[in-house]
């Protein structure tokens, strides 16, 4: 922790704060936190030049567990806050993070438009297909027949497919990761941050408390059998037909990141009033 203030060869541990997580033992989010810190070390950035932005939910607690600047906002609006921050402060590395309920349900509209807008930031969703903080309600990615107190016998609704939605909405980088492979996830996060534009990583991150059966995900995941594509049509077919456990970069496009154009005729503030003067 005593590295010189300009050093960028920091260790992953130096991106981890001393705040104790609220997560349950065995929660997948612990390893996602490790993956983020590994990625930041690999990216050779300084914690003060990184902002981790989140909404509400178990995984949304993650900003305070890093030594980066953190923003723990309101439910569902992580991407909006992250967008404002990155556009106003393009010099920062901005990572938005959260869960499936936060990102796909209450924050669904922002997810669509963040993909469309293609601001150069990285969005990590820790998907456990359940609302954990409120103790076990179905989320948009929950199976339709999953029984719960709030939706007895299941919601009867088909699952939301975040990767397909991201592709259709214009995300520039789409990957699936698993919390059972911290190094692999760190590598995907590193690639995502380096990739220009909006990068989306869906991390399968089990909820051992409300979805203990998700412990078996670690045996179901497998590397994506094909190389990343930059062809949205191929990516769409791949995402629509995969088994949901393909791990790796599934799409990497070339869209130009959003960057507001500087004015061709800059003015001093006082010059703006000329149009009002009689």
């Amino acid at each position: 922790m005593n590295a010189p203030a300009t050093a960028t060869n920091l260790k992953p541990q130096q991106f981890k704060s001393d705040v104790k997580p609220v997560w349950c033992p065995g929660c997948g989010d612990y390893t996602v936190l490790s993956s983020i810190t590994k990625a930041l070390a690999a990216l050779e950035v300084r914690p003060e030049n990184v902002a981790v932005v989140s909404g509400i939910g178990c995984s949304s607690r993650i900003p305070a567990y890093t030594t980066c600047y953190g923003f723990h906002g309101v439910h569902g609006r992580a991407l909006a806050a992250a967008t404002g921050l990155k556009v106003a402060r393009p010099d920062l590395t901005v990572i938005a993070a959260g869960g499936d309920g936060d990102g796909y349900s209450i924050g669904g509209n922002h997810f669509l438009h963040a993909c469309r807008r293609n601001v150069d930031l990285t969005y990590i969703v820790m998907d456990n297909r359940v609302y954990g903080m409120t103790k076990g309600q179905p989320s948009p990615t929950t199976e339709p027949d999953w029984d719960s107190k709030l939706s007895p016998h299941g919601t009867g609704l088909r699952e939301f497919h975040p990767l397909v939605i991201a592709l259709a909405s214009g995300a520039n980088f789409i990957a699936r990761a698993t919390s059972s492979d911290p190094n692999g996830t760190a590598d995907l996060i590193t690639q995502a941050v380096r990739h220009p534009g909006f990068s989306f990583i869906e991390v399968l991150s089990p909820c051992v408390t409300f979805r203990p059966e998700q412990r078996s995900w670690k045996d179901m995941v497998h590397p994506a059998p094909v190389e990343p594509t930059d062809d949205p049509a191929r990516a769409a077919r791949r995402l629509m037909t995969d088994d949901g456990f393909n791990i790796g970069v599934l799409f990497a496009g070339h869209r130009k990141p959003y960057r507001p154009e500087a004015s061709a005729s800059p003015k001093r503030v006082a010059e703006l009033e000329a149009e009002f003067v009689l």
């Binding site: 923003f71 906002g73 909006a80 404002g84 509209n109």
Partner: peptide, 19 residues
């Protein structure tokens, strides 16, 4: 920035001002 809705616009300005 033109936002997708008012929820976005207020949260965007919070993010920018935090910056």
């Amino acid at each position: 920035v033109q936002a997708e809705d008012e929820l976005a616009s207020i949260n965007m300005i919070l993010g920018a001002s935090y910056g």
